[in-house]
Design a protein around this nucleic acid. Structure first.
Lengths: 332, 332
DNA sequence: CATGTTCATGGAAACGATTCCATCATGCTT
DNA sequence: AAGCATGATGGAATCGTTTCCATGAACATG
């Protein structure tokens, strides 16, 4: 009944060699062809699988990649996670997932758990201002940031969508349609995007039209509704994420603002339901999956080379949520 | 520069006790009050965190929970994962995530990885007919199934939404509206639901109106479009998942079938966009998060008691995607 | 006072891999 | 033929923890 796992010792014994030899053969070290074959045969025979436990202890690091996301419920992060998973699977590495809720404290706690587990490679969408990362990095974690960069850590490789171009294109599109009072509805950790928005808008920028919500759905809805009520003169809004976009659509509907007649909307991230919406939403598509995949590649490549980071293209997908601000309509 | 981690030995030395005592104190064993305090102080002082690596090896199991989902991109599973994460976090346990893609082979491969890591607790949405699980269970994994039960493994604790009641309610609602030719659009692993559907429909059941797609979006769309084209006489459809629902809406639009005028639709799973859809979708809401949370509770409780499983309530949320099949409309 | 019981305690043996190092055989050079 | 480089090999140390076991003290019971 006592089904002990077969260990390297069993294999060594059965093959008539030392454990060292088995270890070498299995991890690609040098060995004579005959020995190699014999060991491999025996290993296969016994269905031997090296225990990660022993290896990890010896090497003082567990394999595996830590993945820290604000919210796994958000489709965008779901797709990002999927990219990471895909890459990790092809490398045979397990992925440990944690949800930070965009809370630096929780993030720090999760990092603690990871360190305890001996995880030494982390992919994260950093929350907060990134102060919490300093001790982590000193602890020797190979870190890659995804989707957001952290203000204080320009040295950490980061995989980003080209928000600058995305926003520029979107804003140009809107101004081209005649819009002048364009609002930005943002979420946590979007300082970067915000500055791009200001840049793209130039002299048209109106600080009152820039609203930042916290991470939750409620907060997003409140922000959108507040914005629309407070400034009924705005004609277009750029939502910095699918949660924000959802909130904008909901709030607009509630306030009886028709999209796109009364309000043009562009949303970040091309989620499947953007097409199902009425009207279908014009979006800035981000390669969420790719972001995850590339981040995983970077973190797996490890400390060897340290690429500066990766910038992936975004794409404006025009559907039906933006209308021209013609001269025909009277300015109230 | 050589910042060695502080080990239990360091703590023992600094506190003037043996390592065994430190270990006992830290894991709640017996020790004299003075010693206990001294050790705790020193440990705090040195910022000692026990390495999971050593412990895992000794105990021949890594903590941690394996979570195997068909597709982390699907909001439903995202929410389920969130539930698991929430519960696991409160227990301080890491969660290792794997995406099976509803492919038993990939599932088996992932289980292999988990075993290699010494993971001994798994929450899974089982794919396939569950044959692959027999060896796993023999290996002593504490397993909990979520969302789907596995045909061959009635003995494994399983957390399910009450599909039977959900389907019954939905079907009753549709028949009450006068629908007679009701289709079912299912995904992989829904044998259970299918049988409930047949049961609920009774003599009205029409096997030709039951279509099962594979997991992908394309496959779902093809199934929906095929169904609608092949049987234009159907008046209502029950979509067994949000991907299927999405496909149904898309296919209907493509074929110029108006919802709900030409086609009534009820979708399993209340995703946020159901409300944004035009018209808003009537859905059978499932407590995805709870399913995950409860599954995590069960798997953490472990082998002690073996509860039969958990059945969580579903709810029919009526929005605007179903219309009465009045006598006014001519039967083509 | 002798004996048994109950504790707290520390040394040492696991756990299962990797890897350093010494050993030995072999083949090549001079 | 002696010396040397090369390569295969196995023993043993190591990683950081938990846990078994022996020890000794303190205390209670007869």
């Amino acid at each position: 009944m006592n089904m002990r796992r077969t260990t390297i010792k069993d294999v060594a014994e059965a093959a008539g060699v030392g454990v060292a030899t088995v270890s070498r053969v299995l991890s690609g070290g040098s060995a004579s062809p005959e020995t190699r074959e014999r060991v491999l045969n025996v290993a296969a025979q016994l269905d031997y699988r090296p225990s990660a436990l022993g290896r990890n202890l010896r090497q003082r690091r567990s394999g595996g990649i830590g993945l820290l996301l604000p919210d796994i419920t958000d489709t965008f992060y779901g797709r990002l996670a999927d990219g990471v998973l895909t890459c990790a699977r092809s490398a045979g590495e397990p992925v440990i997932l944690g949800a930070t809720g965009d809370d630096p404290e929780r993030e720090a706690e999760l990092i603690g758990t990871l360190l305890e587990q001996g995880v030494d490679r982390v992919i994260a969408v950093p929350s907060g201002d990134g102060d919490g990362w300093a001790p982590t990095l000193r602890a020797g974690l190979t870190t890659v940031f995804a989707h957001r960069l952290s203000p204080g850590h320009a040295d950490i490789p980061t995989v980003l969508a080209d928000d600058r171009a995305g926003i520029r294109t979107a804003v140009d599109y809107l101004t081209g349609l005649g819009h002048r009072r364009i609002a930005y509805l943002g979420g946590p950790g979007q300082e970067q995007r915000l500055s791009f928005f200001r840049l793209a808008l130039g002299p048209l920028v109106d600080e009152e039209l820039i609203v930042v919500a916290r991470g939750s759905r409620d907060s997003a809805y409140a922000a959108a509704a507040g914005l629309f009520q407070h400034r009924p003169d705005l004609t277009a809004v750029l939502a910095g994420g699918n949660l924000l976009g959802e909130a904008a659509v909901l709030a607009a509907r509630e306030l009886d603002l028709r999209i796109p007649r009364d309000l043009s909307l562009i949303m970040f991230d091309d989620v499947p339901w953007a097409e199902l919406c009425a009207p279908p939403l014009t979006v800035i598509a981000q390669p969420a999956q790719d972001i995850g995949y590339r981040a995983a590649e970077l973190v797996l490549r490890g400390g060897t080379r340290r690429p500066r980071g990766v910038l992936l293209p975004t794409e404006l997908i025009v559907r039906g949520s933006c209308a021209a601000r013609g001269t025909s309509r009277s300015p109230r």
